[in-house]
């Protein structure tokens, strides 16, 4: 409850600016990947790559951010880092679910089935999604004293298990199918690669904007409850 100096009236500017940037980037990326990007030999369905892959990559970035924030929390024990751990894990989980849904639509369009246990990425994302869903079970049933510590430790443990999940599923896949189904092996020419990169940038900016907005909200909630506490004390 330390009173921040006057410049704290600028609090929240970052969130607003990032949100504007996210809207602009998304508009450009969607328009570009839907109308402008050249069509591939695989036909129109290939345009899903511009949406699906960035979402998947950003979910991994979010989990990475959560892991780093977890380590920082364990070192500094500052509430800010705990906020970042929770919000980042939540956003990562959201993007993981979106990646699974779009991946599933891809599978339907490509192989005619909504779910394929042979698609290593789809299966790995399922495992990762389950792990990070468990994060919230652990967090919600921890005592308030241990909550932030356990969250931080679990964020680190869960992030470590992401490459392991990929490794395990890949090993199993190569044992069953010598030739891996690889959807990113497609060759990209210049313009396609450009829109691919723009898609990643746009989705990352969306992630940062959502992160900022929710961090701001958590900060506000805490300020508010400290104000209420102060008022209750002064009323007595």
């Amino acid at each position: 409850m330390t009173d921040p100096p006057v410049e704290s009236v600028r609090v929240g500017r970052g969130a607003a600016l990032w949100s504007v940037a996210a809207a602009v980037c998304m508009a450009i990326s969607v328009a570009g990947s839907y109308w402008i990007a050249p069509e591939d030999v695989e036909g129109p369905i290939q345009r899903l790559v511009f949406l699906h892959v960035p979402i998947a990559v950003v979910s991994l970035i979010a989990f990475g951010v959560a892991c780093v924030a977890g380590l920082m929390y364990l070192r500094t024990r500052s509430q800010r880092w705990d906020d970042i751990v929770v919000v980042s894990c939540g956003l990562g989980l959201l993007f993981t679910v979106l990646a699974m849904i779009t991946g599933s639509i891809w599978a339907k369009a490509f192989w005619g089935t909504w779910w394929s246990w042979q698609d290593a990425r789809l299966v790995t994302y399922l495992i990762i999604g389950l792990i990070y869903a468990a994060f919230f079970v652990l967090r919600s049933s921890s005592d308030s004293g241990a909550q932030a510590r356990f969250s931080a430790v679990f964020a680190v443990v869960a992030f470590a298990s992401i490459p392991l999940s990929f490794w395990a599923v890949r090993t199993a896949e190569s044992a069953i199918h010598p030739v891996a189904l690889d959807r990113n092996g497609l060759q990209m020419d210049g313009p396609t690669a450009l829109w691919f990169v723009i898609g990643h940038v746009a989705m990352t900016v969306v992630f940062i904007a959502l992160l900022k907005v929710e961090l701001l909200q958590r900060q506000m909630e805490r300020r508010l409850s400290s104000i209420r506490l102060a008022l209750e004390e002064s009323a007595q």
Binding site: L138, D143, T171
Partner: peptide, 27 residues
């Protein structure tokens, strides 16, 4: 060592342990 200090520990334990264990099960 985290799960046993939570409230619904009998339930929390498998829910957080099993997903992390999935790669081991696969292998």
């Amino acid at each position: 060592s985290m799960a046993v200090f939570t409230r619904a520990r009998e339930l929390v334990m498998p829910v957080i342990f099993l997903p992390l264990l999935l790669p081991v099960v696969v292998a």
